[in-house]
C-alpha cells in the first residue's frame, strides 16, 4: 500500500514537473516572439546598440526588466519632456498588451547569455572610480556590482558604459528619478548627485567595467 502511494506521488510529481516545464518553455517561446519588436533597437542577442541609443539588456534579471517595463507603461519613467530616449521606449513598452506578455519578454531577456559591452567612454580612471564606488554605489549595487533584488538595485556589470553615463546625467538633472511615483529612482537620484562632476561619473563607470576584465 505504502509503495503504491509512493509510486502515485512520484507519478504526480513527474507529471506536474513536466507540465510546469512545458509552461515555462511556452512562456519563453512567447517571450522570444514578442522580443522581435525589441530586437529592432536592442539587437537579436539583446547586446544593445549605441547607434540606436538602446542599451544592452543581456544579463539583466527578470525582476528588473519587469519593474522597468511597468514603469515605462505607467509613465513613471520616460515621461519627462527632456528624456529623449525614455520617450522613445515608453510607447514601445505599451506594445506589450498584458502582464503575462510583459513577464514573458522579461523572462526571455533574462534567459539570454550575459554580455559585457565593449567600453566606448574614454578618460575614466578606474582607481579613483573604485573609491567613489565604495562610498556611493556599493551599499545597494554590491561590491561586485551584481545588484541586489532586495534593494531593487540592478546589476551594473552588463550595462553599456555610455548608458550608465547617460543614466547618471538624467538622474542628476531630475529627468529620471524625480517622479514621486518612482520610489526606487528617487533613492538613486541623490546618490547620483553625490558624484561631484562628469569626470567622477566616468571614473566610477571605468571601475565598474574593470570588474568584468
Amino acid at each position: 500500500m505504502t509503495r503504491a502511494r509512493i509510486a502515485v506521488a512520484c507519478l504526480l510529481a513527474a507529471v506536474t514537473g513536466a507540465l510546469a516545464g512545458s509552461a515555462a518553455a511556452e512562456d519563453l517561446a512567447r517571450g522570444e516572439a514578442l522580443y522581435g519588436l525589441c530586437a529592432q533597437c536592442h539587437g537579436s542577442e539583446a547586446t544593445g546598440s549605441k547607434l540606436a541609443e538602446a542599451p544592452s539588456l543581456a544579463g539583466l534579471p527578470q525582476w528588473y526588466m519587469e519593474n522597468q517595463l511597468h514603469k515605462f507603461q505607467d509613465r513613471t519613467r520616460g515621461e519627462h519632456p527632456g528624456d529623449i530616449t525614455g520617450l522613445r521606449m515608453a510607447p514601445m513598452s505599451r506594445a506589450l498588451r498584458s502582464d503575462e506578455d510583459l513577464s514573458a519578454v522579461a523572462a526571455y531577456i533574462a534567459s539570454l547569455p550575459a554580455h559585457t559591452p565593449e567600453p566606448l567612454l574614454v578618460g575614466g580612471d578606474a582607481a579613483r572610480g573604485k573609491e567613489l564606488f565604495s562610498l556611493t554605489c556599493v551599499a545597494c549595487h554590491g561590491a561586485d556590482a551584481m545588484g541586489n533584488q532586495q534593494m531593487s538595485s540592478p546589476p551594473l556589470r552588463y550595462a553599456s558604459d555610455w548608458y550608465l553615463y547617460r543614466s547618471l546625467e538624467k538622474f542628476r538633472a531630475g529627468i529620471r528619478g524625480a517622479n514621486p511615483a518612482d520610489t526606487v529612482g528617487a533613492t538613486m537620484r541623490p546618490m547620483a548627485m553625490t558624484l561631484p562632476d562628469e569626470q567622477a561619473m566616468k571614473d566610477v563607470i571605468a571601475y565598474i567595467h574593470s570588474l568584468s576584465e
Partner: peptide, 11 residues
C-alpha cells in the same frame, strides 16, 4: 509642439 520618436511634447 515638438515631435520625436515616438512622443509629442507640448510646451
Amino acid at each position: 509642439v515638438i515631435g520625436q520618436q515616438w512622443a509629442w511634447t507640448f510646451v
